[in-house]
Simulated scan of single mutants.
Amino acid sequence: MLITFKSQSSSEVTMYQEHAQRILDVLNKNHTRGVITAAEAAQAVALLEQEIALSKLHPEVDAEHASHSHPHHLPEVDETAEMAEKNHIGFAQRAFPLLEMLRAARDANDNIVWGV
């Protein structure tokens, strides 16, 4: 399932629900639909930046989250651990578009909505 985040201050950001779920959990927001108000945006940026920093400090935890979001992925016979590591998309990379949207919303005093 896809979640599309919308704000007047930036382009839409669309993410798979399983990737957006961790971000929304950090922000204590509903996965189905919700709003991050302009008043909440600064705190949301700080929380998300903190979670990104933690994921970079502990890449093994980041990889654990990634493996749970794709339980159906079975490695190819010739796939090596090095290739898997190289192809891993971490939390920081997945969160970046929404973090940029949050910063723009904070600076423009706009809300972000999804699921409406």
Rank of each mutant, 00 (worst) to 15 (best):
M1G: 15
H73W: 15
S67F: 09
I3M: 06
K29Q: 14
L47C: 04
N30S: 11
G115N: 08
Q50W: 05
A20F: 10
L24C: 03
P59I: 14
V77H: 14
E79S: 14
E85C: 01
L98Q: 02
S55W: 06
F91P: 07
L57V: 07
I112C: 02
A63Y: 12
K86M: 14
A20D: 04
A42C: 03
N87W: 13
L24V: 06
P71H: 12
N109K: 12
P71T: 08
A41W: 12
A42G: 03
V113Q: 01
L47S: 05
H31E: 05
R22P: 02
F91E: 01
W114F: 04
D110E: 14
P97I: 13
H19P: 00
H65T: 07
E79N: 07
S67D: 05
Y16E: 08
I36D: 01
N28Y: 08
G34M: 03
M1S: 15
V35G: 00
K86W: 11
V116A: 13
R22E: 02
L2M: 10
G34W: 03
E60S: 13
S7D: 02
V26I: 15
E40K: 03
M15W: 05
A66S: 07
E12I: 01
L2Q: 12
A41H: 07
R94L: 12
A81F: 09
E100D: 13
I23A: 01
S10T: 10
A108G: 00
Q17A: 10
I52L: 03
E100Y: 09
P71I: 11
Q21W: 05
E18G: 00
K6A: 07
A66H: 07
D62F: 11
I112S: 01
V113S: 05
W114V: 01
A20I: 06
M101K: 00
R22G: 00
G90S: 12
H88D: 04
H58L: 09
V45Q: 10
V13D: 02
V61P: 00
H68E: 14
L54Y: 08
P59A: 09
N111T: 04
A81G: 02
A41F: 14
M15E: 00
I3Q: 03
P71N: 06
G90W: 13
Q21R: 10
M101H: 01
E85P: 00
Q93W: 06
E60D: 15
A20W: 09
M83H: 11
E82V: 09
L74P: 00
A20T: 05
I52Q: 06
H58D: 06
D25P: 06
H19I: 07
D25F: 09
Y16K: 13
L54I: 13
G34N: 06
V26H: 02
E85N: 06
D78S: 13
A39K: 08
N87K: 15
I36H: 04
N109S: 08
W114Q: 01
L27Y: 07
S9F: 08
V61T: 14
T4M: 09
P97R: 04
G90C: 12
H19Y: 13
K86A: 14
A92Q: 04
I52G: 03
S9D: 08
T80C: 05
S67V: 13
A44F: 02
A84V: 14
E79P: 02
E82D: 09
H65A: 03
L47R: 14
F5M: 02
Q50Y: 06
A81I: 11
T37Q: 04
P59T: 11
D107S: 08
P71W: 13
L24T: 02
I89R: 10
N109G: 04
A108C: 05
F91K: 02
A108Q: 07
